[in-house]
């Protein structure tokens, strides 16, 4: 198995792990964390595609690589916004739960 396929498979596994954490964790901060983990997996699958496209003296196809760089920056800005929302929720209510006020099912 070559490097690209190995890390592509790693990316696939990370997507599953991150998605599991996103669904199962009740704590919003852990959900944000799991979402970033999932994103890392998606980027790795892209990285595998880029590595397979190595040609013309380049180590990989530069277009997917540039997309991943853009994606990393956008993922960070989304994370920053989500964290700010969460901190504001905590400031307002003293809690960080996603449940309704009456404690019913979310």
């Amino acid at each position: 198995m070559n490097t690209a396929a190995l890390f592509g498979l790693l990316g696939a596994a990370l997507v599953g792990l991150g998605l599991f954490g996103l669904v199962v964790h009740p704590n919003p901060l852990r959900k944000i964390l799991a979402f970033n983990l999932l994103g890392g997996g998606v980027f790795l699958v892209f990285g595998a595609v880029a590595r397979r496209g190595a040609a013309a003296g380049m180590g990989g196809d530069p277009v997917p690589q540039a997309l991943v760089i853009t994606g990393l920056v956008v993922a960070f800005s989304a994370t920053a916004l989500a964290v700010s929302l969460l901190l504001r929720l905590f400031q307002e209510t003293g809690r960080t739960t996603l449940r309704d006020e009456d404690g019913g099912k979310p």
Partner: peptide, 20 residues
């Protein structure tokens, strides 16, 4: 996803020559 990664087309499509 793993199946998709393992069944990527060969030779891989690439824009590297155009970029270069």
């Amino acid at each position: 996803l793993a199946v998709a990664v393992l069944s990527l087309p060969d030779p891989a499509p690439t824009l590297a020559p155009m970029a270069a």
